[in-house]
Design a protein around this nucleic acid. Sequence first.
DNA 1: TAATTTTCATTTGTCAGACATTTAAAAGTC
DNA 2: GACTTTTAAATGTCTGACAAATGAAAATTA
Lengths: 246, 246
Amino acid sequence: MKINTNDPADLSAQIAKAIRDAIIAGQLIIDERLPSEQELAEQFQVSRPTVREALKRLAAQSLIRTQRGAFGGAFVNRIQYQDAYSQHVTTSTLLLSMNDVSFDVACEARFAMERACAPMACARRTADHLATMRAEIHRQSQPGLSDESWCASDVTFHRAFVDAAGNPVMSYQLAGAVEAMQPLMNMITFTARSREKIIDLHGRIADAVETQSPDTCDQLLDELATYTAELAANVLTARANRDAER
Amino acid sequence: MKINTNDPADLSAQIAKAIRDAIIAGQLIIDERLPSEQELAEQFQVSRPTVREALKRLAAQSLIRTQRGAFGGAFVNRIQYQDAYSQHVTTSTLLLSMNDVSFDVACEARFAMERACAPMACARRTADHLATMRAEIHRQSQPGLSDESWCASDVTFHRAFVDAAGNPVMSYQLAGAVEAMQPLMNMITFTARSREKIIDLHGRIADAVETQSPDTCDQLLDELATYTAELAANVLTARANRDAER
DNA sequence: TAATTTTCATTTGTCAGACATTTAAAAGTC
DNA sequence: GACTTTTAAATGTCTGACAAATGAAAATTA
């Protein structure tokens, strides 16, 4: 595990990369203890603060965890679904919101991936998943629900749908697509009329999942995707007109 | 932007969280300069090394970039597809390899998501995508190709297929599913016979994309998924038998 | 002897202060 | 005006120190 002396990057970044590569390559196995900060400092010929900065970089990626005390230290961490999940959502959300990703592109990706869940969700859905979906549909039909809460409920509904597929890897991968859309959805104005239509579609999707009709489910998701894109297009048109008036 | 004094986490973790939340909430916009390390230290009532550790955590997530010199500092970073991509691949790879995710589950998720690309890939593929796919098929048919190179070529082929869908969000999301499978694929022994069958399927998938036949494409991906899972099952059976003999 | 308490060494967490290096604006020079 | 030099500000790195946590080992006690 050595650092490249020609690398222009910060020492802490180089050290972090060296350790990260060792973990990915399997040279450091799960729960293995890294040398103490003092020892690492000597190995890499740097000071302890520099080593610490490197370790914090790795901790931020959930690659290691640290423990204080006599037999403490830095340990190679077993990445949990939850850690990976939240990291993925954060990165995806920022990626979409910071790069002016068009609503259409994000929407297309999201619904294409969700439709991939349809057959599995229909085949494996449990009562729990159905109950969550129905509960969110009920929440959505409550009058006076704020736009923000509406979008949050929408995300919960779709997460339940994805989880119904019973494949944790799928749930993890889809998380980025589904949750990262929320800020983009927040830009849409959901009138009572549009909410009604979406609620109706949600209800029919839940029905299709319950009756295990993947084709119907697929078709309804397509309809929902089209309608959502339409709503977004209207917002954009209205905004363009308003800007043109000025 | 304040830190919770009841939080048991490290100060640097708390500070990183506070700044991260501010970025996510849009309180800090792209390319905005954060206060200097000295000023942050005063704001949060901690020392400069602690602030630096927090900033390194954020840098590890590509949330900020730093620049030395007068008028330098830490700036909110616009997350690029490439940054998000490599982070996603790293996390996904470790998640799969560290958690004994069954081959079936990962394989199912990957091919389900790839099949979601089929209609888009058929509709939008360019000559470049087709050329990359053909080139990898050619590479795969070379005798004496190492197992590792074979798997790498397989990943490149599938990436080209996904990219053909012409949706960068899709490419980003799929990256985790496709590339993270590579270490799992490396455990499979690809005999000349099994390679031949896969090459044939790859060729027919490329044909289907070229002739824009999404249904054929879908079906071929399904076949490939089934065959891959079969190969993996054989490896597992053989391994179980060998272990039983001992 | 067995159980409990205390001590202690080790390690991470945090701090203070210093110097090196980089960078671009500002001042000076031709 | 164009070029060079100076300078101030910021990050990068180092040294040394102390605080806090933690589990092992030693000491104490029943």
